[in-house]
């Protein structure tokens, strides 16, 4: 039954993608279609990346109320960008190839995640300590970004505003190819490991006694999460609660936490939310740039609901 629900989610996602592409086609149709297709590609990447990253993080932490952004990963990406503006100046920053900026920011994220989180993971400190450390680092990075932004003069500050808020309407086109490759690879790895992930959801003791090498598996999963968050942050900016929203919906829809079902279901629902929401806002309500705010708010409500109904774990 759960499998059938996944097909339902997939059909919904396709429908929304079609609506996003096809609604209100006017003027130079070929041109508009090409533009929309590129946007859709970005949305799908973000949707898959956020959904998979959230599922993975929740699985290794054994906690339903977490999203990758609480680990400060997107803040780290922003800090990297701000630091580049600080070092290069606004004009220099604009002149650098976005792909190079992305690779630099990604390298910084992986390096820092490895430096900060791996020792914590390997020392087997409780996950709460790890997460709180991540959350505090997130606040630290965010504050440092805005501190740096204040130190740069107001001109340069304007350059940064563009990369500080989630904007689903104007994704960074240059990164589409590299993002697509990374997302596809990470999603494929997660899919191949779906059975191992099922076992990891039993927690460290259960997984170890079933023969999973917990430390390295957690390190590998964290690396995937970092990659996926980097992709989505680079494309549209920081997204906090989207993952929470779609994973909770997927779990409610399929009634299971088996990764063979949950991973595709969450990804499809994420596509539905982003493409569908964008289509509705763009054509129905005329405020496409605000999808980010709406999604964050709804995700926040889901978070409170999960807490109130005691569904944290």
């Amino acid at each position: 039954m759960a499998e059938r629900r996944v097909w339902l989610a997939a059909a919904l996602a396709l429908l929304c993608a079609a609506a996003f592409l096809g609604l209100n086609l006017r003027g130079n149709i070929a041109f508009v279609l090409e533009l929309r297709a590129l946007k859709l590609l970005a949305l799908v990447q973000v949707a898959v990346a956020v959904a998979v990253a959230t599922v993975l993080l929740q699985t290794i932490t054994g906690n339903r109320i977490l999203t990758p952004s609480i680990m400060g990963l997107d803040a780290l990406y922003l800090l990297g960008q701000t630091a580049l503006v600080f070092l290069l100046g606004g004009i220099g920053f604009a002149a650098v190839d976005p792909r190079l900026k992305f690779v630099i920011a990604l390298a910084a994220m992986v390096g820092l995640a490895a430096a900060v989180f791996l020792p914590l993971v390997r020392a087997r400190h409780s996950l709460t300590v790890l997460l709180l450390t991540g959350a505090l680092l997130g606040i630290l990075f965010r504050s440092l970004s805005s501190l740096l932004a204040r130190l740069i003069d107001p001109n340069d500050f304007a350059v940064l505003q563009g990369v500080s808020y989630a904007n689903f309407n104007a994704p960074q086109g240059e990164l589409l190819a590299i993002g697509a490759v990374l997302t596809a690879v990470a999603a494929a790895v997660a899919w191949r490991q779906r059975h191992v992930l099922d076992v990891m959801a039993l927690g460290p003791a259960g997984a170890i006694s079933l023969g999973v090498d917990w430390r390295w598996s957690v390190a590998g999963v964290l690396l995937l999460v970092v990659l996926l968050v980097a992709v989505s942050t680079a494309l549209v900016g920081p997204v906090a609660f989207l993952g929470l929203l779609v994973v909770a919906l997927a779990e409610r829809l399929t009634g299971t936490r088996r990764h063979a079902v949950l991973l595709p279901a969450a990804a499809c629902i994420a596509v539905t939310v982003l493409a569908g929401g964008q289509a509705v806002l763009q054509h129905g309500l005329g405020g496409a740039s605000t999808l980010g705010v709406v999604v964050e708010f709804l995700g926040g409500l889901v978070f409170l609901l999960l807490l109130a109904t005691g569904n944290r774990r």
């Binding site: 609480i70 709460t128 997460l131 609660f241 705010v293 926040g300 409170l304």
Partner: peptide, 30 residues
């Protein structure tokens, strides 16, 4: 809400609080 959190994990409460504050801040922005 924090009454539901297990008392054995003192760091869970600030973690929860940070997310809780984030949700309200998102509401404020909305």
């Amino acid at each position: 809400l924090v009454r539901r959190l297990p008392p054995t994990e003192p760091f869970l409460m600030p973690l929860f609080g940070i997310v809780y504050g984030g949700v309200i801040a998102a509401g404020v922005t909305f």
